[in-house]
């Protein structure tokens, strides 16, 4: 669009630019710097070129093996929670009341999990799932189900997934609800008059109108789940074994546990790049498939 141009407007962007430079660009450059070097402490650095990156992508090395395994776990985790949270969020949004005082009540209840700090969510579930004193763990075990997230890989995964679903389905539901609210009443009336079944109404009206918000929901949930750290770290600490060690947890282990700043820096860069690429792919695929471009409103 050829809007009228006022160059002075750029000055307004300067403060933001300065802040971003200090908070993002400078640290990023530091990370790039580290990723090319090796350190043995004492602030001594040795040039290592792209060595860390080579190692990172080679599954036969220790670093590469750990990275690729955690990456696989991370992708599996994101896939599972998306497969659960998106349909569940839609169902929750659809079953919410459309008007009346109950709307406010539902919204507050849905918003509650979103308001809890992440480490608290982890702590809640860590206690909730304990077989000795946790309500969930104790109940399951007394029902004869052998449940222990500390020793059993499957139980650990199940706990982390259920916890994430509990924590984040609300977000998907709220976004979908906002999409549903924007559908004019006439559409529902027309569908009623056309004799459409509940399923037909969903397929022909609600889903197409929710397309946009669903795209945002999927993107947000993917990015968040791909970067997940706090909750599984609090609940399982990445175990048992390495079974719930996601990339971020691995990263912290390397950077802080072993103080391998070079390896950690290389890993963060690759990690970052993967997130950017996957988001871009998601966005392109989803905007092209299904989501209609807005009708062009020309000069009437």
């Amino acid at each position: 669009m050829d809007k009228t141009i006022n160059q002075k407007a750029w000055f307004l962007v300067l403060p933001v630019f300065a802040v971003v430079a200090f908070s993002a660009i400078l640290p990023l450059m530091t990370v790039v710097n580290y990723s090319m070097q090796d350190t043995f402490g004492n602030n001594q650095f040795f040039w290592n070129g792209v060595g860390w990156f080579k190692e990172l992508l080679d599954p036969s090395t220790d670093l590469g093996g750990r990275f690729l395994a955690s990456l696989g776990r991370n992708l599996l985790f994101s896939a599972i929670i998306l497969a659960i949270e998106v349909p569940l969020g839609i169902v929750v949004a659809l079953s919410m009341p459309r008007e009346g005082w109950t709307v406010a009540v539902c919204l507050v209840i849905l918003a509650l999990p979103l308001l809890i700090p992440w480490n608290v969510v982890g702590t809640i579930w860590q206690i909730f799932g304990r077989p000795d004193i946790g309500l969930l763990g104790y109940t399951l075990n007394s029902l004869g189900i052998d449940y222990n997230y500390v020793s059993n890989e499957f139980d650990a995964w199940a706990t982390v997934i259920v916890m994430d679903v509990w924590h984040w389905t609300s977000l998907v539901a709220l976004l979908c609800y906002a999409g549903l609210k924007s559908i004019p009443d006439a559409y529902y009336q027309a569908a009623q008059i056309d004799g459409a079944s509940r399923w037909a109404v969903f397929k022909a009206i609600q889903l197409p109108k929710m397309n946009r918000v669903l795209l945002i929901a999927v993107l947000l949930r993917f990015m968040d789940s791909f970067m997940i750290y706090t909750e599984p770290f609090v609940v399982t600490g990445g175990g048992p074994g390495n079974s719930t060690t996601f990339v971020s947890i691995e990263l912290v282990k390397i950077a802080l546990g072993q103080f391998d700043l070079g390896k950690a820096a290389a890993l963060s860069l690759v990690y970052n790049l993967i997130i950017l690429i996957v988001c871009w792919v998601f966005y392109t695929v989803m905007t092209n498939a299904g989501v209609e471009r807005p009708a062009k409103k020309g000069g009437a």
Binding site: K3, I5, G298, G299, A300
Partner: peptide, 20 residues
């Protein structure tokens, strides 16, 4: 009629848009 350019002319007159 609709889309004949009436609104576009107004936006140009107002200075909301810049002509090519």
């Amino acid at each position: 009629p609709t889309l004949s350019g009436k609104t576009s002319i107004m936006r140009l007159l107002a200075g909301l848009d810049k002509p090519a």
